[in-house]
């Protein structure tokens, strides 16, 4: 792998560097963890585990390189390898296992769209945000992941390929299918709200 960062740093120096380089990523990392686990406590645990792993492997981190992508990769792997087993969420099939013959039409059932929300107490912005969140949460985790990485966190396809350990071509096709599923869910919502001309 990459070369070690020269001389051994003292623990204080290492800790200071670690905090300066990696803690600024805490906010996006926690949000990513939350979108994967859909649970605040689980997100908390997952993020802590990620930082501890990052600390153990910090000597291999090349200073000034993409700390955010590095941490996201560690978190994604932790989620797959350990966390998902013990997660409270019912186990979902990893999309990559069925890629190729997965039929994007039979995504899980309707997400129970709320049509009775009081427009006076909740702003339209909140409503849209809630609906986007519930449509996104209803997607299989691999679909959700690429949308978060691309549209929310602004990673490039190349960075996503590294974070997810898949070829760029797979990033593209997965993103495409994920967007189609999301679109389908949001169109149902739009129709239920009276927009029946495929506005979304």
């Amino acid at each position: 792998m990459s070369e070690r960062t020269g001389k051994q740093l003292s623990k204080e120096e290492k800790d200071a560097r670690f905090e300066a380089e990696l803690l600024p990523v805490l906010d996006p990392l926690y949000n990513f963890a939350y979108r994967l686990t859909l649970d605040e406590d689980d997100a908390n645990d997952l993020v802590q585990e990620t930082y501890l792993k990052a600390y153990r492997f910090f000597d291999y981190f090349e200073q000034g390189t993409n700390a955010k992508a590095w941490l996201f990769r560690i978190l994604k792997n932790s989620f797959i390898n350990e966390f998902r087993k013990k997660s409270k969420q019912p186990a979902k099939v990893d999309y990559s296992e069925v890629e190729g013959y997965y039929n994007s039409e039979d995504v899980e059932g309707e997400s129970g769209v709320a049509t009775t929300t009081d427009m006076r107490t909740e702003s339209v912005q909140d409503l849209i945000g809630d609906e986007v969140a519930s449509a996104l949460n209803a997607l299989p985790v691999d679909f959700r992941t690429v949308i978060i990485l691309c549209d929310l966190e602004g990673f490039t396809y190349e960075e996503m390929a590294k974070i997810l350990d898949i070829p760029i071509g797979t990033v593209r096709s997965r993103l495409h299918r994920a967007r189609n599923s999301l679109k389908e869910k949001l169109e149902k919502y739009a129709k239920s709200m009276g927009y029946n001309n495929n506005e979304i």
């Binding site: 926690y30 849209i128 809630d130 986007v132």
Partner: peptide, 9 residues
């Protein structure tokens, strides 16, 4: 919709 409306936790 995702980048502009999804609320951050």
């Amino acid at each position: 919709l995702v980048s502009g409306h999804l609320k951050r936790v």
